[in-house]
Amino acid sequence: MPLREKSDEELSKLLSEYGITHGPIVDSTRKLYEKKLEKAMEDAPVEVPSPDKTFYREEVEEVTYITYHHSPVRQEVNSDVVRRRGNAEPDKEEEPLQYTEPPVQISKRTANHSAAPGMKESGCSVWKGVRLLLLLAVLAAAVYYAYCRVVNNEEDPSGIQ
């Protein structure tokens, strides 16, 4: 559709899309804007609309990722849970559990995409630190106990002597 047949609003929208600052489109300005737009379209026929598309695609990607991740994973896990527990317990009690468990999994999975790797590493290092501290504490306690015994042993004979 030629620019000349487009409405003022359409023209204004196109101008904005092509990043051309413009005022009102009236009889005296229309011709100039048509010319400017034509030039811009010739210079960048694909370039200008594409940034918009990629921008949207990114947004959509995020959404689809989340949906893709919960449905299959959740179902598999749940069916496993149901199968395992179904033998021992009635199904009716399982159902509320099914609905409470999945949200937790979803949040974990979505978090995994962005923050989880860092979180895991820091969590690991914290755990290592705690373990080390516990080990040191146990060692210190053992050494102290041994020392006390030795001192007592030394004192006792001296007391006797």
Binding site: T21, P24, S28, T29
Partner: peptide, 8 residues
């Protein structure tokens, strides 16, 4: 006209 063109 100058003003319509936003002083561009």
């Amino acid at each position: 006209q100058f003003l319509l063109l936003k002083k561009d």
